[in-house]
């Protein structure tokens, strides 16, 4: 393992995950989706997970969000030890929020944006709900005129902004981002990524960012875990991906297949 995996101990851990195994299905159809995955994310850090389809990267996010139960391993988030047998605490569900890939599937089609943003706040007993909704909409660049619209009146990029606003109204400390821009056009992707960078700069939120796009990961993250078939094959600083200094052959292959991550000159020469 490379030196980047051991971090200065002075920084507090936001996510600690050691020997995580995740399973899907029962009996003979039981599938070992994540195999002994270990990584460590500091408070305020942006940590990326890359890999091909079915490599288990989204599965890890689902376990951390408490959406999947069939797992074992040593997992703590924000100092809370997580157990597979018990549902996460109320406080945990507040501090850890997830943003999903498909903005068309993740918003209730018959609820207004206002309903979507206030529901979770009411569940968690927030006060001053109205000003919080307005300020969250302002922060994600939608403005209050969007408050009483329905999802079908919004474009993909606008919906993803709503999903981000919904997570932000709860003032989370950890954001789990599952391919938040892969369903969007490149120019809209740039706008959403800029918004996420702003959020992190202003609020110091910890990001766990899953993507198959090495360019996005290199831009958004400090460190990256590369996954293949459920295993973490390499953990390295994002800058080393940009520099092409990768150790594992799989990472090199991934880099070669990702035209977007290549500098313009080499794409042309090939």
């Amino acid at each position: 393992m490379s030196s980047e995996t051991s971090l200065p101990s002075s920084r507090e851990a936001a996510i600690h995950c050691a020997g995580l195994d995740v399973f899907y299905g029962q009996g003979t159809a039981r599938h070992h989706a994540v195999k002994r995955a270990s990584f460590h994310v500091c408070k305020g850090e942006s940590f990326g997970i890359v890999g091909g389809s079915g490599s288990g990267k989204s599965t890890i996010l689902r376990v951390l969000a408490g959406l999947d139960g069939d797992w074992q391993g040593d997992v703590s988030v924000l100092g809370h030890r997580r157990l597979a047998s018990t549902a996460p605490q109320r406080d945990y569900r507040l501090k850890v929020q997830m943003i999903f890939q498909d903005p068309f599937g993740s918003l209730h089609p018959r609820h207004t944006i206002d309903h979507c943003l206030t529901e979770a706040m009411r569940c968690h007993g927030f006060d001053r709900i109205e000003p919080r909704v307005v300020s969250a909409l302002d922060r994600v660049g939608l403005g209050r005129s969007f408050r009483f619209r329905f999802p079908h009146q919004l474009s993909g990029g606008q919906r993803q902004r709503v999903a981000i606003a919904r997570a932000l109204v709860l003032e989370p400390e950890v954001l789990l981002l599952d391919e938040p821009t892969s369903a969007l056009d490149a120019s809209i992707q740039a706008e959403v990524l800029n918004l996420l960078l702003e959020v992190r700069r202003d609020l110091g939120t910890t990001f766990l960012f899953v993507s198959h796009d090495l360019g996005v990961i290199a831009h958004m993250c400090d460190r990256v875990a590369v996954m293949r078939q459920g295993e973490v094959v390499e953990t390295l600083a994002a800058a080393r991906i940009t520099a092409g200094e990768v150790a594992h052959p799989y990472t090199r292959e991934l880099l070669a297949n990702c035209y977007a991550a290549q500098p313009v000159e080499s794409a042309e020469a090939a």
């Binding site: 490149a186 120019s187 992707q189 740039a190 706008e191 990524l193 800029n194 960078l197 796009d213 090495l214 360019g215 996005v216 990961i217 290199a218 831009h219 958004m220 993250c221 994002a238 800058a239 991906i241 940009t242 977007a260 991550a261 500098p263 313009v264 794409a267 042309e268």
Partner: peptide, 29 residues
Amino acid sequence: LFQSQHPYTRGLLNCLPTGQNPGQALPTI
């Protein structure tokens, strides 16, 4: 294509994150 001077084509090329300027705001169209 990569030397294109058209503002839209340039915009599409420039808004792709490459990791060259990590953490900086990406140019938008």
